[in-house]
């Protein structure tokens, strides 16, 4: 039997706006994923460590403070350092359109702004992980 898709929802930086992270975490859980929520004020190293410990397929970052261009690549780098180059990284929050191509080029595959319906995030994850998860 295929194991459940495992998702780490994390809030890097100082930003305490956790409404979106929690709503998405619950929506992913209700969609049948295994969800781990780190809570707020996580450093990139803490997030990568949690991703490794929990052996996740997806890391979803939530940043509403505007610090995403600094923090998201640092998380990607920390994940790479843990050997998790292939984990799917998503980012939600207040992200200006013009930042999206840069973020995607850095390996942040999905960027979701305010107003994203949660089924769209579920669909994106399922599509991206369409290769059977072992």
């Amino acid at each position: 039997m295929k194991r459940k898709i495992r998702v780490l929802v994390a809030k890097p930086g100082l930003d305490g706006h956790d409404r979106g992270a929690k709503v998405v975490a619950r929506a992913l859980r209700d969609a049948g994923f295994e969800v781990i929520y780190t809570g707020i004020r996580q450093t990139p190293a803490m997030i990568a460590e949690a991703a490794l410990q929990e052996d996740v397929d997806v890391v979803g970052l939530s940043i509403l403070s505007g610090a995403h261009m600094v923090l998201a690549p640092k998380v990607k780098q920390a994940l790479n350092e843990q050997g998790m180059d292939d984990v799917l990284i998503l980012l939600g929050g207040i992200i200006p359109d013009e930042d999206v191509p840069t973020l995607q080029a850095m390996g942040i595959k999905g960027v979701f702004g305010p107003g994203t319906p949660t089924p769209q995030i579920v669909k994106f994850i399922l599509q991206e992980l369409a290769e059977p998860v072992t």
Binding site: G13, L14, D15, S65, G66, A67, M69, V70, L71, K74
Partner: peptide, 10 residues
């Protein structure tokens, strides 16, 4: 160090 990336943003 904790302020990384957050200066002046919010």
């Amino acid at each position: 160090p904790e302020a990384l990336g957050e200066f002046g943003k919010c």
